[in-house]
Design a binder for these strands. Structure first.
Lengths: 192, 192, 192, 192
DNA sequence: GATGAATGAGCTTTCATTCAT
DNA sequence: GATGAATGAAAGCTCATTCAT
């Protein structure tokens, strides 16, 4: 019921969906990529949509798990925030296909993934938001920032930067990107 | 090439593409929305793709024009940066349909708009990047920030925050969002 | 909206459905039979099912209309009953494709036409039943017959005999069949 | 060729085919209904079609056997005819799934069971027909009835009435139906 | 200029059948 | 004997595009 043939399908699907997006990806191509017959996908998943959804959930779960783990290791709010940024960036580097899918399909919302994904999105956003509020209470985060907007801005900054660098740029230096984002998010662009 | 029947088509297309995304939007629906017959769209545009592309270009041109205008009015780099953020946010509020399309279709890259859009994207990014570099030369922008990454991060922060607030949130206060983003981008989250 | 290309499709559909039944008939074949492209069918009908349904309703309407007309022309119950049998037989001879479809698909109920057709079926049955009851009240119909069962039996007798003769037999004499059914239904098989 | 695993498959098949018809019934569902694996069906039968055919033949054999037995017990033609009607009705009540399959699939002829079933159908019809002719020779059956048509009519009357009453009606009184059909077939609807 | 009926390539999905275990 | 994962042919349906009017 679980592993069987699902893993190779899963991996192939991530790749093809990342390349073409949901709409232009064909089940045929995913099957070919996985080295199996088209019917086998329907034997393992109810359909193209369910396959995509299972892959989305898995991706967001992994992202949340990776981030949570790193955040939990730190004690102060600022250290946690830095860990969050670092973990998200690292995740997006390792799984850049997920990065594309998350930003384009989930964020873009051509389809109505909304219902199934809304909670996941708000889940991750909430994590950031709560961290910010805790920091404001402790006085380590500027209290002139609205936390909802800031949480979205942080996710967007890291996500779009990661996509731009990891996917579209010819080459990049990971450490430099991480440092830049860390400094940018904590201290802004303005020199002091 | 010019107006006549093109304008109502254009507006209808923006609406439908924003709602459904490129793939799920149908020419039929755009025609119905515009109150014309399907054939008329093909009389004015070469096809669905060209219609979408013309709409993308127009959108980015408008965005760039609006931003350029505001940026040109200011004298210092920091004032220009603030103006840029303010102008982008304002544009995304007024044309939130464009906001969705830009972030989902252009950014997400289900299709190969890349070739035609790459230059546009890099055009806008370049503007930000050059501003940052000028600021670093003048000593008003932190020089430990890589400008390419930071430019992407700024666009992402403003874009995603705008999408999250204007499109998905029930209600919002525009001034608060603008203030939050301005402070966040200039000074970061860390209290001083 | 009405006639346009619907009539040739309609006729082709009746033929193919009668030949293959609903399940084995393909839209492709109906299109080929009508001399048009597959898409044209979907331009005129919502789908295979709707096409079949529209054809069923039309068929039953025609049958009911033909029968009603003949029945109305007669004055006595017995004359009306004879007219009904005669009209049904005549209809089944002229439209033997309908005869097949009605007996096999509607009656057989592989699908759930039930909901949409139940009323039609009961409509025709009711006509027979009410005629029988009126006759019983007048004393010209045996009152030891349950009218519901008898109505079904009459429809079955005429329908199956028509199918057997018109469709499966090599040759037949229409008048003989009509006389036989008329005598059989009125007086039974038993010699007096 | 014989029993072991075939019986549960057989019963499950009758049920599912009666419910869905041949085309919409799936081998998977029959297997599930029988509590076995799909492959086992192919281990016992050559395929879906053969399974259905074996079930048809069995059904008609049982019907013919039941009817023959009852008919043989009577001496006069009229008594034999009454016995035939009674036996067919009784069989259809006990095996109403067969009743549905026989009337819908065999009669309806969506498929080409014709070749394999033609003889079976004509077998049963012939029985009735010969009985009628014998009766005509003896002078107990009206000789103005064409026997082929009448045989089909009798089968249709009993079959459709049984289907209507046993399958579609909410409730029914068996004896009343039997009496009605017996009277109707022997003496017709006309009061004397 | 404008229309909308017609097209057909291309996609998702179903399911009878096979075969290695 | 029995299984069920895997298959792929076949079907229904969508929709961008064309073109006669």
């Amino acid at each position: 019921m679980n592993g069987s043939r699902r893993l190779p399908i899963f991996d192939a699907a991530v790749k093809v969906f990342a390349e073409k997006g949901f709409a232009r990806a064909t089940v045929e191509e995913i099957a070919k990529q996985a080295g199996i017959a088209k019917g086998t996908i329907y034997y393992n998943y109810k359909g193209k949509k369910e396959l995509f959804l299972s892959l989305l959930e898995e991706g967001i779960e992994r992202l949340e798990a990776a981030v949570s783990r790193e955040v939990a290791r730190k004690d102060t709010v600022l250290a946690k925030l830095e860990a969050l940024v670092s973990a998200q960036l690292s995740f997006f580097e390792e799984y850049r296909d997920y990065c594309k899918i998350l930003l384009s399909e989930v964020w873009g919302l051509g389809h109505r993934w909304e219902e199934q994904v809304q909670r996941l999105r708000s889940g991750y956003f909430k994590t950031i938001q709560e961290l910010l509020e805790k920091g404001q209470a402790e006085g380590v985060i500027r209290d002139d920032l609205e936390t909802e907007t800031t949480a979205a801005a942080i996710f967007g900054a890291v996500g779009v930067a990661a996509l731009d660098r990891f996917v579209f740029a010819q080459e990049y230096k990971y450490d430099q990107i991480l440092q830049t984002l860390r400094q940018f998010l904590l201290k802004g662009v303005q020199a002091t």
